[in-house]
Design a protein around this nucleic acid. Structure first.
Lengths: 344, 344
DNA sequence: AGCCCGTTTGACAGCGTTGTCAGATCCTTT
DNA sequence: AAAGGATCTGACAACGCTGTCAAACGGGCT
């Protein structure tokens, strides 16, 4: 069974290959009757244009690259995020007959930029969706833009002018979460920060402070503990916060992994959640719904964000005119069992 | 900054483009001095062959497709698996300068086969790694083989002759786990089965029976409960098993999600794990290490399996001579805190 | 020197598309 | 009926590489 080419279709429809090409690419100025004839031939032969030939001739690859930090380098389960982003990009791709190429990139390697160049030169994706934290690294961003490949960053913060980026409202939603805790009567609300290199984490911390202020609560350095995004560091912070003379009644962790670590630390000390301690996280990883009690947290619309990013790339006319500005997709609170009224 | 082509390299090195091609493709019969000259020119111009042109001319795409069931269709966190498989395939790809294209495929859609054909016709990957449960579906497998695309299945069971497949020893390792529980003194060991359509689950159940027999324990239907792989169904099975007149002292769930559900059911009843009940799962998802107590389970070498699968595809000489037989990669027990001696 | 044979190299024709541009066709309008 | 302009169509040259095949080269023999 040999594959039908554009020539076969042209012959069957009695037109030139150029006309077939026009129909396939939905170009203007093809008579309706001709278009139909060609479309029938396409259907009959089950013709599908060869991507490579197309790419070679047109410089469009119908391929989107998703570039993210190599999860194996972490011990944290970033897998959930990556999958959700992939799903979003895939939705956009499916809608436009694009395919998705994934490209983990370990920024700790000296040749990370080279590898990216290889991807760009060899495959020539029509665009690249760059996930955090890579999207905040000038070295990585520049490696891509230097080649002129359209790029959408999924992260807050500026790196390179007014390139289009898709972000979520970390700061605002964290303020909201803090106010929610305050509304439950908590007056000593601790915060566990994460890895400094993650820009988003910084915004989460600022949001926490905003929330305290908006609720008329004082900020205290003693109630801030530095983690590194890992479960283990959450456990450690939990231990240290819970052994304070007047421990907090609520802890807000900058991500769910650390929140889970805090819960474990509390569990070990026989501290009941949520009766004695409320714990909240950020991310809504799968674990959040599965631990007991289930975790109140914040869900980022990762898959939507990624979809929007890919969509922009796919629909960019080529001059980058659509690839400007910032698209803010709001996150939302997921209230579950790990939060309750402050203990009397 | 315009991209260097093979012509530029040829000119700079003072050879024909064909010779450059030979060097790039590591072909025989190039004089050492010529090879060096060409390689210098390549380095100097930072030349990288255009994948599309290569594919068009050679019919090799240097692309591997990873096809798996669309995780969004499940409510279970299959994300972890997919990421691990992706990592494995990516390792193999990186080693051979291949790129990876991912292609979720919802087999519940009537046009799933069509979508696969589109992938194959348009992109022409050099091979496809097919993940369970798709790898057990003749409709899907045939859709791929009909096009003559090399395929490696990651799943037990026969579908299509002696195609190469990479599997793990579900049955043997489950027998081992069962014997381990028996060795702790458990005599009433329950089993929670999963979704029937998953072949692997069937083998896990058989392994459980083997293990009972090898330990001289009787098999009892009353100690078997049918779940559907989900956390919720594990919870339900936990409830029903724990309300038996003489409840089991150990429960073996066919996957970790269900094991977590069982633990939750036990927790609600105030049953202590592992003192009163041992629980084990299968898969070693991230959750397994994070719940409290951490879960004894079985870890599949998913990423190794996927790497081997991709490696076979990449190194197949084209006649399929390497793509025969079965590659068994053993799983291993991860003993953690959820198991202990049977209560007196 | 002449011959043979294995090694090394290059010319050239594809691979299946799209872009360019000129030619053919169809309406309007006069 | 002719002219003019928009609309449609096709011939042909790219795109950057590999495969084929023939030519050139380089020893080791007579």
């Amino acid at each position: 069974m040999v594959k039908a080419t554009i020539d076969d279709v042209a012959k069957l429809a009695g037109v030139s290959i150029k006309t077939v090409s026009r129909v396939v690419n939905r170009e203007q100025n093809v008579r309706e009757s001709t278009r139909e004839r060609v479309q029938q031939a396409i259907a009959q032969l089950n013709y599908r244009p060869n991507l490579s030939a197309r790419n070679l001739a047109s410089q469009r690859s119908h391929l989107i690259g998703l570039v993210y930090d190599d999860p194996s380098a972490y011990e944290i389960p970033s897998g959930g995020f990556i999958i959700r982003m992939q799903q979003g990009v895939l939705r956009a791709c499916a809608a436009a007959d694009y395919e998705l190429l994934i490209h983990p990139c370990n920024y700790r390697h000296r040749n990370a930029g080279d590898k990216l160049h290889a991807l760009i030169d060899q495959v020539r994706p029509d665009g690249i969706v760059l996930a955090a934290p890579l999207s905040n690294m000038p070295r990585i961003v520049n490696a891509i833009t230097a080649k002129g490949t359209p790029l959408v960053r999924m992260s807050p913060g500026e790196v390179n002018g007014d390139q289009y980026k898709v972000v979520t409202n970390d700061r605002e939603v964290c303020a909201e979460m803090t106010r929610y805790l305050a509304s439950l009567g908590h007056r000593r609300i601790a915060f566990v920060t994460g890895h400094r290199s993650h820009k988003a984490i910084k915004y989460r911390f600022l949001g926490y402070k905003d929330g305290l202020e908006q609720s008329g609560l004082p900020f205290s350095k003693d109630l801030v503990c530095s983690g590194d995004n890992s479960f283990g560091s959450g456990e450690a912070c939990g231990d240290s916060l819970l052994s304070l003379d007047t421990p907090p009644t609520a802890v807000f962790a900058a991500n769910d992994d650390m929140a889970a670590g805090i819960m474990r630390a509390a569990d070990r000390r026989g501290i009941d959640i949520p009766d004695q301690l409320s714990v909240v996280g950020f991310d809504d990883i799968t674990l959040a719904r599965q631990i007991y009690p289930s975790l109140t947290t914040i869900r980022q619309p990762l898959s939507n964000m990624a979809e929007r990013a890919a969509h922009a790339l796919i629909n960019d006319p080529g001059d980058g005119s659509k690839l400007k500005g910032t698209d803010v997709v709001p996150s939302k609170l997921m209230i579950r069992e790990s939060t309750g009224p402050a203990p009397a």
